[in-house]
Computed example of a mutant assay.
Amino acid sequence: MLEVKDFAGAPVTHGRVSLNGTRIHYVVAGQGEPLVLLHGVPKSWYYWHRVIPMLSEHFTVIAPDIRGFGDSFRPQSGYDMETVSEDIIQLVDHLGFDKFGVVGEDWGACFAFAVAARYPERVTKLSFGESLLPGFGLEDWSHLSPENRALGRFLWHVSFFHVPDFPEMLISGKEAAFWSTWMKNETYDPAAITDDCVDEWARTSSAPGGLRAIFSVYRATWENIKFTQSVQEKGLPMPILTIGAEYFIAEEARNQMQHFSSNVEYVGFDCGHSLALERPVELAETLIKFFSPA
Rank of each mutant, 00 (worst) to 15 (best):
G40F: 01
L91V: 15
V61G: 01
T286A: 10
A220V: 07
F154R: 10
E186N: 11
S56E: 12
V27A: 05
A114Q: 00
A29C: 03
E130Y: 00
T60P: 05
S292I: 14
L35G: 00
A63P: 05
R122V: 08
D80C: 11
G21C: 12
A202T: 12
Y26L: 04
V123K: 00
K174V: 08
I89F: 10
S56Q: 07
L19A: 04
L126N: 02
R50L: 15
G108Q: 08
M1R: 12
A250R: 00
G9S: 06
G32H: 06
N263V: 15
P34Y: 03
S172K: 08
F166E: 13
V158S: 11
Q90P: 15
G210V: 02
F7R: 07
E285H: 05
D80T: 12
W107V: 04
D199Q: 12
S292D: 07
Y218F: 11
W48A: 04
E86F: 04
E57F: 07
C271V: 05
G78S: 15
K226N: 13
R122H: 12
H273E: 05
S127D: 04
F248L: 00
V84H: 13
A191F: 14
A150D: 07
V92W: 02
A191T: 14
I62E: 04
R50M: 10
A116S: 10
A213T: 04
K99N: 11
G210P: 03
T13M: 09
S85K: 12
E3P: 11
F227D: 01
P42H: 06
R254M: 02
D106V: 09
D165P: 06
H94Q: 12
P190Q: 09
S85P: 06
Q232N: 11
L283K: 01
A10V: 14
G244E: 00
R254Y: 03
A191Q: 13
Y247N: 00
M183T: 14
G21T: 08
A245Q: 00
N185V: 13
E57V: 07
K226C: 13
Y47G: 05
Q229Y: 11
K5R: 13
G209Q: 01
L287W: 06
K43P: 03
L38W: 04
F290Q: 02
L151N: 15
G96L: 14
E147W: 10
V92N: 02
G70V: 08
I62Y: 06
R279E: 03
I214K: 04
D195S: 09
P64T: 07
